[in-house]
Design a protein around this nucleic acid. Structure first.
Lengths: 236, 236
DNA sequence: ACCTGAACACCGTTCAAGT
DNA sequence: ACCTGAACACCGTTCAAGT
């Protein structure tokens, strides 16, 4: 029984106390491995060899833990040095880095897309982007709009790319949907059926795989190029 | 007691059976009024005067109900006639219509942004967009990329706009964050502090209100204009 | 076909108590 | 300061039973 106790606490060799960062790190690993739905305070506590209520002391509440975990995804992005690149190329690089970071933790994309309003850890990122846009010549309301256009596009677009179907739908629904799509009436859906070969499983609303398994690389590149092109035109 | 029974069942005067559409409609209203987190099978059942397990017969499972409910948000969008507008103006109009629809049901934006992979009810929408892009001159892979650029931008950007903080953070955090933002060090954050007046509560990652209360209208217009401008340039 | 009613295996969170 | 341990008020879902 004493043995039982020490085994349960075998999380650390010398049992130094938990930190908030420890919990967030463990949550990130847990979500990466088991998915966001599987993250419960009880499951994470068991994984860490601790009682569920111990987590509350460090992270406050589950919603706050999830928010901190999703913020971590973007904190790890290292922005390129700003001085050796034109502003539009710098933006393009940053967009790709952000997308890569999100693809590394796809299970947290829903949270980034829908709960990321504000976090102090993002200020260095904001500083860099605003600085680059200012040097490019944007100012006043147009500076804010360009910033919002860029940030909203990257985070939002990749969130959509990484979206997935709810887990509980029965196995084999992909084949069912593919069959349904191919059976679409050419009279009511002429453009769709005409282009089905290039649309199926490659376009939003007509794909069955998520961007996790089936990334939309060249669509992202095309969208990014178009947006930056348009921003440059608006600047001039 | 007999009276009790009839009162509990007073949902309909003559007690005609529930339909799947009834449940989805009720769920949409419930989420609009009480929020997505408040939607539980038990609460919705109580609202409908029925036992929780009755809902399962119609909608399968909670995840499927939520998916059907979020799809409903976009099903109500009526696309403008395609024949009297140039393709780029048509796209701009459609983007605004979709944004308006999402703003009407902001509590479902998280689901639209993160779970909308595929739904047969979207095929008429896909048909119209593909048709317009084809007539504009896009074809092959570029048709798919342009479609994805547009759809991913609109749905993703507005999802970001409508994102909100987790509910449980304590009252008054907005003021705390505003103070923290205004206390940012001008030496480490020169561009940020220089433009704080126009950034605060108006830009992604530096706002505390959601797009529900504080819509980013002109940022959306600027982003949309830039994207469509860029798509037009890429076409030529 | 459609719904009731009971039951199961979970949740997040609070709170008093220990060290 | 940091964690245990019990307890509360919920969840989604399954399944047998009714009509």
């Amino acid at each position: 029984m004493g043995e039982n106790k020490t085994r349960r606490r075998a999380r650390q060799p010398e049992r130094n106390p938990l930190s908030r960062a420890d919990v967030v790190d463990a949550a990130l690993r847990y979500v990466d491995e088991h998915g966001l739905d599987a993250l419960t305070m009880r499951a994470l506590a068991k994984e860490m060899g601790v009682y569920p209520t111990a987590l509350y002391w460090h992270v406050g509440t589950k919603a706050q833990l999830v928010a901190a975990t999703s913020a971590r995804v973007l904190e790890n992005v290292v922005l390129p040095s700003r001085h050796d690149l034109p502003w539009d190329e710098w933006l393009t690089d940053v967009a790709r880095l952000i997308r890569n970071a999100m693809h590394r933790h796809p299970n947290l994309a829903p949270i980034i897309g829908s709960e990321l309003v504000v976090t102090t850890t993002a200020l260095p990122f904001v500083e860099r982007v605003v600085d680059v846009l200012e040097r490019a010549g944007f100012s006043g309301p147009d500076l804010v709009h360009t910033y919002n256009a860029f940030v909203g596009f990257v985070l939002g677009w990749v969130t959509m790319e990484l979206s997935k179907n709810p887990v509980d739908v029965e196995e084999g629904w992909q084949k069912d949907y593919a069959a349904e799509l191919r059976a679409a009436n050419p009279n009511t859906f002429p453009a769709l059926t005409r282009n089905l070969g290039i649309l199926e499983n490659s376009a939003f609303l007509t794909r069955w795989d998520s961007g996790r398994e089936n990334p939309l690389d060249s669509s992202f590149e095309a969208a990014l190029e178009a947006l930056v092109l348009g921003l440059r035109t608006r600047l001039a």
